[in-house]
Write a protein that binds this DNA or RNA. Structure first.
Lengths: 343, 343
DNA sequence: TTTGATTATGCAAACCTTTGCATAAGACTA
DNA sequence: TAGTCTTATGCAAAGGTTTGCATAATCAAA
């Protein structure tokens, strides 16, 4: 906001008319004579006038700013979702206020409060892995802010939600491993509190059960987080088992990449001795050697749809009482790190 | 901004005092009796009052919002820079309005204009690869917005700038290749208009010249962009040469990864037959097989420093006439895709 | 000429907060 | 008792814009 900003009053003084006349002319009101309109518009252009959004926001009670909070910006996953959000939102004149919680519950609260203070028109939230209570969401919601939760579900909190069917993705992946002949299929999980972690594990367990593969506790490891480093650590302990697994289904690609490097170092062949499957299908995954079989997620669409729902809520000012729950379908991308199906 | 927001006037009515008294009490003015202060503060807390930032911004002529425009959010590179920016800025109560230009000049202008309208307090800009004129920057600057350009330099436009010494990074990398015995060192460049592309090529050329390695035109290819796909295409044409190179210095890791996959497919050994060096040191680069030698950039610090300079400008309201030009030093990370130095 | 209709414009309030200036009440001094 | 000084509070303006209502000016019709 700059000192020299020309205001509607400046224009008014210049032409010796009242500010209201200027305002009406600029908004093309029918009550202003055409000639005057022209004079005013020309002057506005000449003096480089643009209306002060702050004043407008104050008046209209909306800022045309949307608050976005994600666990981290740096990950391909969330930045792609943001990409989708921006593409949806850009054309409708909404701006994005983006922040990352760094997977911190407290930070998430702090950020959302700050955004509420700025009076964003609504929220798009992907909760941190340490968010287990949702009072802050309730508070925001009951203050009248529309809010859409995306990617990570919050059990027990009612709101519009857009998620990926992690269960199905995991199920597909593990069933595929079974069908290619794997018998001892391990799982390296992500942060325990995340809905995604739980759903993927569920998919893993159910796929084993359905296909009559016994579930072995020692083959299931929960990583600290979802980093490549965690993949390294967990894979090391899997390789220390008396009988090592013949397949590993990882919570995500980062973990799988870490695991891959450990397996390679030990001189174990992928996929002949151990099949490896990731989740997320990050852009580099296909360039790895062997290229990584992974579950692709429609994460861009996830952002797009979340934004669309929020925008819809913003249009329809009558609060609808029911919430939308959208589930997008992931897809298994088969590459070299897993065996071929027997024909 | 919600209907039910409680204002200072609501508090005033409740207690039958004037809004000014409320305001003073809340701001701990010495002209209000202690007992009344207490009553007011308690009520404010009880009614969940928080001051309307919009009204404050209008009054104070500042929003405490910073505008950030990057070419793309999805890349590890820029999201890490944003990371640094947020970490610097968060504690001082500034919020970030972030957008990506998608490497489009027009979009960059549009975004900056929208942000100017919202009256952000300042700009942090990394120009798109198609930005070759800087009138829009000049306009923003002359409207009184402080502006810091980071990562990509704009020749001919004066402003505070924070960049990485691409020249030095490239020089180090190529000199290292020479010292490990490479004689036919190719270069795959990025988008032609970028300062980074030019500087890295310069570093490449000068390193060759200084070490008396002849510069061969057919070994220098300018990619369309800086994607892995471009790496694939360019590497293919390098492998079609009568005499193929014994080393390739790539504009960035994405290109190098694409190149690596092509080289592997042909059954050519890395680094024995071809050494490969990237730039950016993306997190997965060390997990590739062979792990990728790359030039690490202090990109987080780049964001941090850019934000610091902007904040400094915001504090010091007297416009300093000279601009800061900060150059950060990159560092060569030697891994398996390049040969060892002879001892 | 007066009335009524039409057209173009201005006033003031509203959005919310802060702050310089004015003022009321009360206490103290001469 | 009148005058002065404190102390606590309120008024109103400012920041920029929109908009309902009022009004001035013009013209046509009776």
């Amino acid at each position: 906001m700059k000192k020299g900003q020309v205001t509607i009053t400046d224009l008014a003084k210049e032409l010796n008319v009242s500010p209201s006349t200027i305002s009406r002319a600029l908004n093309n009101s029918p009550f202003i004579s055409e000639e005057r309109k022209k004079v005013i518009m020309d002057l506005a252009k000449k003096m480089n006038y643009s209306p002060n959004q702050l004043a407008l926001s104050l008046l209209n009670k909306r800022t045309k700013i949307l608050g976005v909070v994600v666990p981290e910006i740096t990950s391909y996953y969330f930045s792609t979702a943001i990409n989708g959000i921006q593409d949806k939102v850009g054309s409708s004149g909404y701006k994005l206020m983006i922040s990352q919680s760094n997977e911190s519950f407290e930070e998430e609260i702090r950020l959302m409060e700050a955004m509420a203070l700025v009076r964003v028109d609504g929220f798009l939230i992907s909760p941190s892995s340490n968010t287990t209570t949702f009072d802050h969401f309730e508070k925001i919601k009951s203050s009248g802010f529309p809010l859409v939760v995306f990617d990570r579900d919050c059990l027990g909190f009612e709101a519009d939600k857009v998620v990926v069917d992690d269960y199905s993705g995991a199920f597909q992946a593990v069933e595929y491993l079974v069908k290619t002949g794997c018998k001892r299929i391990a799982h390296i999980g992500g942060a325990a509190s995340l809905s995604t972690t739980q759903h993927r594990k569920m998919g893993y367990l159910d796929a084993l059960a359905k296909n009559n593969v016994s579930i072995v506790d020692e083959l299931i490891i929960n990583g600290e987080d979802s980093s490549s480093e965690s993949g390294v650590t967990c894979m090391l302990s899997l390789l220390n088992l008396e009988v090592i697994p013949d397949a590993v289904f990882c919570y995500n690609d980062a973990i799988a990449i870490g695991a891959m490097s450990v397996i390679r170092e030990r001189g174990i062949q992928i996929p002949e001795e151990i099949s490896l499957v990731g989740f997320d299908d990050e852009p580099y995954s296909s360039y790895f050697k062997p290229s990584l079989t992974s579950v692709w997620q429609p994460i861009y669409d996830l952002g797009l749809l979340s934004a669309k729902i929020l925008l819809d809520n913003l249009m329809a000012d009558n609060e609808s009482s029911s919430y939308r729950y959208e589930v997008l379908k992931p897809e298994l991308m088969i590459r070299e790190s897993s065996k071929k199906l027997p024909i």
